[in-house]
Design a protein around this nucleic acid. Structure first.
Length: 228
DNA sequence: ACATGATCATAA
DNA sequence: TTATGATCATGT
């Protein structure tokens, strides 16, 4: 297998993206980084998003920070997911920031979470820390969209969590809320603050939070694809 | 052993 | 500060 080339343009359609992703399967992060002329960090302690950025280069995602899907034109979000030797996720998956204000009239159907997860290209990557970063292999991609059951599971958790936010109980939310979707801090550090609704309806400053998919959700999703 | 809460780099 | 990309590291 020859090492693929970094993309020079965004994929024009779904199958082009999928073909690019499939051509990466079986290769190592070291091969791709070298071929793209990118330095490889010793580990991910500091550059936590390095793997995701590397695959964006190869798949032709537009680098930069937009509150949009990675491939907005074709309605697809890219997620790399670190897995162990059995293909099980090693980490939860960040979805998007949790909106703490301005939530009147927001429904599951119109939520950012549902929009982000409408279609996702999952790319498993070996993630065990004992494997040197450059030796980690890329797995077979999975283009996924939530089944009716999955959509319902996420909706229930989302509604429970949003209720707490709207009712001024943000600071009582822990990562234990929600079966499949959870809310956890998403910030530079514990001193970063953003506006939210307090317990008496007043504005407060609190830690920014994000929605994350729990492992039990992503694990089932990967298993459904690779075992059936 | 594992999930929760905390944290890191960078761009605009 | 908020958005992107996430993983780290400690407590249970």
């Amino acid at each position: 297998m020859s090492i693929p080339l970094p993309a020079t343009s965004p994929p024009r359609h779904e199958q082009e993206l999928l073909q690019r992703a499939q051509s990466l399967a079986g290769h190592t992060l070291g091969e791709l980084a070298a071929h793209a002329g990118l330095p490889i960090p010793e580990n991910l302690k500091r550059e936590k998003g390095w793997v995701g950025m590397l695959l964006e280069v190869y798949l032709g995602a537009i680098a930069g920070s937009k509150p949009e899907q990675d491939f907005a034109d074709i309605g697809i979000e890219l997620k790399t997911i670190p897995v162990d030797s059995r293909g099980k996720p090693l980490e939860t998956t960040f979805v998007c920031v949790a909106p703490l204000t301005g939530n009147s009239g927001v429904t599951w159907e119109s939520s950012h979470v549902r929009h982000k997860l409408a279609r996702v290209l999952w790319i498993p990557v070996e993630g065990e820390r004992q494997i040197p970063l450059s030796d980690r292999h890329i797995g077979a991609p999975l283009l996924w969209q939530p089944s009716p059951e999955e959509d319902e599971q996420l909706r229930q958790d989302w509604e429970e969590l949003m209720d707490l936010i709207v009712l001024g109980k943000v600071e009582s939310i822990t990562a234990r809320h929600g079966e499949f979707l959870q809310i956890r801090p998403k910030a530079a550090n514990s001193k970063a603050l953003t506006e939210a609704i307090g317990e008496f309806g007043q504005p407060i400053l609190t830690l920014p939070r994000g929605f994350y998919l729990k492992k039990r959700f992503t694990s089932a999703l990967l298993a459904r694809h690779f075992l059936l």
